[in-house]
């Protein structure tokens, strides 16, 4: 022992004990976790673009892809790759789904956030979250085996696998997640607003309609957008309930085929690197861009709420 440390605490400050190493280790682990999200999204986009690029650079034309309903990639004499019918199929199913899901999910969110109290609210929240966890193939099965005969019976049409069927199924699927997001948006409205309005003699519905809904409108819009994104990306249930027929729908009882379902059904049967294979990836690029834009705008809208 030569010169003693200037103060006993100085040594203690520099000690690297187990807690210090655990802290560093955890910091590295969570950093890897956080960065992996970026790596995966960039990686997937790069992969999809790479696989589909051959089609986009050689066979792609705006008219041929977005303007034609002829999707006949397996034709030996004249293969065509018109995605219009597929886009219309996805759009019509998603549109109908939103007609179903928006009123249901907003109603549920308003009930849970503004009207229900105590146990009812807690039980409903858990149930809604459980509903969101039902696998999509189960929904597809319901579309195929319950809704199909029901639609044939009720509307007296030859086939029940159609826009109506898959739109209803998809609407029910998208509603729980939309309900959860919309409820969060309503909960984010400061309670002082409700208190102020109630003290002025507003009924619960007047408080909701005149104060809470306007204050939460951005969050509600984000909820709807996320629902649209969910609808665009859903594959299995739509594949099973839509009829999978290439068709520009003119009524809710027409069968259609969705972009996602096309990829799912055909990708396994194409030769890797063939034009058909690349065309399916081109559909993938399109889907990726659309859902990315929808989710990004939902996210930006939600961020907008936090700032104001």
């Amino acid at each position: 022992m030569s010169a003693p440390p200037p103060h006993p605490d100085t040594a203690a400050l520099d000690r690297r004990d187990l807690a210090w190493y655990v802290d560093k280790l955890v910091a590295v682990l969570v950093f890897v976790g956080g960065v992996s999200a970026v790596v995966f999204i960039v990686g997937i986009f790069a992969f999809v673009t790479h696989e589909g690029w051959g089609f986009v650079s050689e066979h792609f034309s705006l008219r041929g892809f977005f303007g034609s309903i002829r999707w006949a990639p397996t034709s030996t004499s004249n293969p065509t790759y018109g995605a219009l019918a597929l886009i219309a199929g996805t759009a019509s199913v998603t549109g109908l789904a939103m007609l179903v899901a928006v009123p249901f999910s907003l109603g549920a969110a308003i009930y849970i956030a503004e009207f229900a109290t105590g146990r009812t609210r807690e039980v409903l929240k858990v149930l809604v979250e459980m509903l969101a966890a039902i696998p999509s193939v189960v929904w597809g099965f319901i579309g195929l085996s319950v809704m199909n005969p029901l639609i044939i019976d009720v509307f007296n049409v030859p086939i029940g696998l159609c826009v109506l069927n898959s739109g209803l199924i998809l609407g029910l699927m998208a509603a729980p997640i939309m309900t959860t997001i919309a409820e969060d948006a309503l909960k984010a409205v400061p309670d002082t607003y409700r208190e102020a309005a109630e003290a002025l003699g507003a009924t619960r519905w007047q408080v909701t309609r005149r104060v809470v809904l306007p204050a939460a409108r951005q969050g509600l819009l984000a909820a709807v957008l996320l629902g649209v994104g969910r609808g665009f990306g859903e594959t299995m249930a739509v594949l099973m309930a839509s009829g999978h027929a290439i068709n520009l729908p003119t009524s809710p009882f027409d069968s259609v085929r969705a972009l996602t379902a096309t990829i799912a059904a055909e990708l396994g049967e194409t030769a890797v690197g063939s034009t058909h294979y690349q065309a399916l990836f081109a559909l993938g690029i399109f889907l990726f861009v659309v859902t990315f834009v929808i989710n990004l705008s939902a996210d930006l809208i939600v961020r907008g709420i936090r700032k104001t």
Partner: peptide, 8 residues
Amino acid sequence: FQRPNVLP
């Protein structure tokens, strides 16, 4: 109220 709670 204690804190001014103007409506949005």
